[in-house]
Structures are given as structure tokens and as C-alpha cells.
Amino acid sequence: MDQTEALRLFDAQLRRDAPPETPTTRIDAGGGVVRQVGGGSHEWTGVLWSDLDEATADAAIAAQVQWLHTPEAAGREFEWKTYSHDRPADLRDRLLAAGFQPEEPETLMVAEVSEVAELTRGAELPDGVRLVRVTDAPGVDLVAAVHEQAFGTNSDRLRMRMLDQVATRADTVSIVLAMAGDEPVCAARMEFYPGTDFAGLWGGGTVEKWRGRGIYRALVAHRARIAAAHGYRYLQVDASEDSRPILQRLGFAALSVTTPYLITAPA
């Protein structure tokens, strides 16, 4: 894989020229910044892309903070999604000075779908574990429960997002559960980005007592096959430190580090 070209396409297709995520999402572009404004409380709002330098960064940040004081923004959580290759080099320091707070960084990893499919050929689930496609609210509830067990975080917003996806945009998402009998032990989803070269892998998490048995690898393989059938060239992941080594063995390359910087608008 040409990593420079893959990163260029990622920045262009999923950041700078990103289409609205949902029918109620709006994209605002101007002042060197692309901002997404979600139409619902569970929809993501924040900065997808910025093209700034030392002379323009502070004004661009101030403009976003000013928007947070408008009635439309009231009470919203707002994320400036930074990447380590963004300019200026001290963008993160400037965001801190403006009141943004960083979350845990993750590694942006990208791979050719064909390579992942080849490297995961033969990946199998443990005996007694099967994959179930999630298409309804009870399945979403099980995925949300796995997410909370695997990551130790509240999944209310994720649950609302997935419910919206399976109800109104089922063609843009593939959600799967690994079940051991009646027990959900791993869950993951893939989001399709029509008109781009990318499909995104999200939420891959295994409950603790089932880790180390190849389930995560099998779910990557399953989603790679689906991405290939849909004609996508690349898979993209924001990888945690736990999943990064596994993904590297499956053909993914680390292209950047992404760190969310959060701020909440006044109510």
C-alpha cells in the first residue's frame, strides 16, 4: 500500500470533502475549517478537518468557540478531532488554551481490503461461537451491552446512533455479534462511506473472559469480506493500544495519531 496516497485520500474523502453523515447532518466549511453539525443529540458535532497555520489557527479556534455560544449549539458536546499530521504543529496547545480537553489518543490505521482478506483467510471462530447479523433494536441492545463490558464506558449515545442506523440507514452499516450460546461475547460494526474508497471498522470489543481466542480477528475477517463485496478499496480504523498490534499483523499501517479535543457548549 502507498501510505502517502492512502493518507491523502483519507484526508480528502473522509475529512475535507466529507458528505453529511445523516439526512439531518449539516456540513459547514469556511475559515480553514470543516465542521459537522449533527441534527440530533446523539449525532456527532465537531471539526472534521482544518487547514491552518500559525497565523490563522487562533482565529479559527475562536470562531468555533463563538459558534458554541449560539442557540443552535446550546448544551452540545463539541469535538475537534485532531491528527498528528495537522498543522500548525502546536494546534493541540492552542486548543488547550481555548478550553478544549483531550481524550485518549488512538492510531489511525489503514489497510487495503484485499490484503486484509488474504491475511485473514482461514480465520475461524472458537468452537461454540457463531456470528449473528444485527438488524433490530434487541440486537442493538446486546451490542451496547458488549460495548460497556469490553470498554467500561457508557454506551447510551452509541445505542441511539445504531438504532438510527438500522432503522433508517441500514445500507450504510454492518453490525455483527459473536454469540456463545445465548451470551454475546464480542461485537463490531462497519460503516460504509458511499462515494469514497473507505469503509470504517468501529467498536470491535470482546468481553474480558473471551479475549485471546481469535474472535476479534475473525470479526475483522468477516467485515473485510463484506467490504470487498461492496467494492471498497481501504479499511480504516481508529485503533486503541490493545487492538493496534493485532491490526498490524493483519496488514494495517499506522498513518497518524488522532486525538479528540472536547468542549461543551453552555446550556
Rank of each mutant, 00 (worst) to 15 (best):
T4M: 09
E5I: 10
R8T: 10
L9D: 13
F10E: 08
D11Q: 07
D11V: 06
A12Q: 14
Q13S: 08
R16F: 06
A18M: 10
P19S: 12
T22I: 09
P23C: 06
R26T: 11
D28G: 00
G32P: 00
V34R: 08
Q36L: 10
V37M: 12
V37T: 15
G38F: 11
G40F: 15
E43N: 12
E43G: 06
W44S: 05
V47S: 02
A59T: 08
A59Y: 06
A60H: 10
A62D: 14
Q64A: 04
Q64D: 15
W67H: 06
L68G: 13
E72R: 13
A74S: 10
R76W: 06
E79M: 12
Y83D: 05
S84A: 15
P88G: 07
D90R: 08
R94P: 06
E103Q: 05
L108H: 00
L108E: 02
L108W: 01
E112W: 01
S114C: 03
E115K: 08
A117N: 02
R121P: 03
E124T: 12
L125H: 11
D127G: 14
L131T: 04
L131S: 04
L131F: 15
V140W: 09
V143S: 08
V146D: 04
A150N: 06
G152W: 07
N154D: 15
N154I: 04
D156W: 11
R159G: 14
M160Y: 13
M162F: 14
D164V: 06
Q165P: 05
A167M: 09
A170F: 13
V173W: 07
A178T: 00
A180D: 11
G181Q: 02
R189T: 01
D197M: 04
K209V: 09
K209G: 03
W210F: 14
I215D: 11
L219A: 05
R223C: 02
R223E: 00
A229M: 12
S243D: 02
S243A: 10
F252T: 13
A253P: 14
P260L: 14
Y261G: 13
Y261V: 07
I263Q: 15
I263T: 15
A267L: 09
